[in-house]
Design a protein around this nucleic acid. Structure first.
Lengths: 339, 339
DNA sequence: CCACGATACGACAACGTTGTCTATGCCGTT
DNA sequence: AACGGCATAGACAACGTTGTCGTATCGTGG
């Protein structure tokens, strides 16, 4: 760790520390010659401002917290981190991750302690945490800035970034229909997960628009984990009139359906079409490749982090909310075909 | 954010701020009565020490950096984070994640900038980053503490946590042999990945011990990604004398092998036994379930973080290295059977 | 040539802790 | 009674920045 401080730079440059501070922070009021001299010296001595001192004085920590729960695929959280990190690095921020321990005791001591330490300039909240009223209450009580990714409700409560899950699921269902499928099964996500709900609604709407009567048993419960996809697939395929296509609310569960099919000796897509949602790493590596909705997870997290750094999410302006919508697209692979 | 400081507590308790500081930090030299009074007041007013001030004064940031690269399964990084977070929370630390941008330009500006900001009390390095000489050089030049998880070389260079990959792969190979398999294929990991190399060596040793001549074409290249497992599996199964069992160096690639088998109409484990390494979420959700080596990833990261916080890894004592070994075990599922 | 505003910079006090050093009181010992 | 030693506590100066405010210096218009 370099031991040189702003004082050393100031001395050697023959200016006051305040002037050096101004140069560092790109403030006005420094002549071009002075500025150049100071900058050279900073470069030459390899000076780095001390973050703690800076934080103490300016009351900003340059720390962004990303809060999530590990439900379903690790992929989701991974992509969120990738996107948030891009935005953080661009702006010279660091990214602290805060994991919510458990769906049940969401506000376990861990998270609450961490939030109350008061270190964060702002938080990025991802589903399903972004819809947890207890957690939101804690955050707001702290007076923290936050931006949400794909929230499910309280849209006026904070800025957020989203994509149209419902429309995407609608499109996907329509595509299966156009391929000639009429008995289309759906595997649901966790009950309290907004995206899951919206995907189900998109499926329902598309079916209803086409005059199809969706039998209750066509919708199987799932929890976004692969195992639940296997079970749900097993259940659907065991019906007296099994579906000819299954739409899983995420890729992991779709993978489970592939397993369920192979277990029963059914070929995909010959005997059964299977489609998913996410376009994670599994989708392109399965055989056959999985037709799925590409969700721009990293981009959403990046946008949210950007908004946070730009000052949206500040509690003082919480009434002025903002939203950014990103686009999805369907990726056609081999797991679905016409009937 | 609470605006009460140590001064407020001191005033109300009728003691000096230093005494309050002592109570907070559980230092000696405070009478039981005084201590109780101060603690009550802290509790009552909801006082939280200001982290920046504390860092500035004590020269510790209470920030641990976890450095990784997203190679192969997201699962690995996820588990690392889970483990490191457990240790961090126990000790009141926060966890900053630092992603290495790209294998090629490992020390992209992002990571280097982040490290040089000098915020970290210490770093946890995971493979393959923990073996990157350039990154190690940067870290050591900064005088940073670090502990490595499953390093591949330079064992005297820092403390580390590990498990015996080679022995585990040896055991797994032996188990396949005992099931009657003689032509056992192996799918390798990335070339520069130490764990991958050790697993291959375990396989080679076990085969050699049993007098088996491993044909070069039995070892197929892979990169820990599922797609490479599919390709490698395809290749192995296309041999004129295909293996009766395939051991993939991780679960993701084993999943690819399952796909390759199903693509060729081979049943697992009837026509082919498949085993993996990791015991990630995929292993139990595939059909059939994957026989694999359970790797205690979270526990290794937790142990490493603990060591870091306890002061191992301090550059002043770098010569006094320490190592902790954790245990693996083989999880038997349905994907392997006797021949 | 003067007044005046703009520009460029500096002095100094925060920011809220911890580290170091010193002071006080009380006990047991001689 | 004097003393040493320990337990307890406080005073005060760091720590390295930024914020606020003040002050030279300079160019410019009248």
């Amino acid at each position: 760790m370099s031991d040189i401080t702003i004082v050393d730079i100031a001395k050697q440059a023959g200016v006051s520390i305040k002037t050096v501070s101004r140069v560092i922070n790109r403030e006005e009021g420094v002549g071009p010659a002075t500025r150049a001299r100071v900058e050279d010296l900073i470069e030459k001595l390899g000076y780095r401002p001390n973050v703690s001192a800076r934080s103490l004085s300016s009351r900003r920590s340059y720390l962004i917290g990303v809060v999530f729960m590990r439900v379903g695929a690790y992929h989701y959280v991974g992509e969120v981190q990738v996107g948030a990190m891009r935005a953080c690095r661009r702006a010279g921020y660091h990214m602290v991750i805060e994991q919510v321990d458990d769906p049940g005791q969401a506000r376990g001591p861990g998270l609450e302690q961490a939030l109350k330490a008061g270190r964060f300039d702002g938080l990025v909240l991802t589903p399903p945490v972004c819809d947890d009223p207890e957690i939101l209450a804690i955050i707001e009580a702290q007076g923290l800035s936050y931006v949400r990714v794909a929230p499910d409700r309280d849209f006026g409560r904070s800025p957020y970034v989203f994509m149209d899950d419902q429309q995407a699921a609608h499109d996907m269902t329509a595509r299966l229909w156009d391929l000639g499928h009429r008995r289309i099964g759906f595997i649901d996500g966790p009950a309290d997960h907004g995206s899951a709900r919206r995907r189900r609604e998109g499926y329902m709407t598309a079916m209803a628009e086409r005059g199809a009567r969706v039998k209750p048993e066509w919708i199987a419960p799932g929890d976004f984990m692969p195992l639940s996809g296997l079970e749900a697939g097993d259940r659907l395929l065991g019906l007296s009139e099994p579906p000819t296509a299954i739409f899983a609310a995420n890729d992991s569960m779709a993978m489970g359906v592939l397993s369920a099919a192979s277990k029963r000796g059914l070929s995909v897509p010959g005997d059964l079409s299977v489609v998913g949602f996410d376009d994670g790493p599994l989708a392109e590596s399965s055989w056959p490749g999985l037709t799925t909705v590409h969700q721009p997870i990293a981009e959403m997290a990046e946008a949210a982090t950007e908004m946070l750094i730009e000052g949206f999410g500040d509690p003082r302006f919480r009434s002025r909310t903002a939203a950014r919508q990103l686009d999805y697209h369907i990726v056609e692979r081999g797991s679905s075909t016409s009937r």
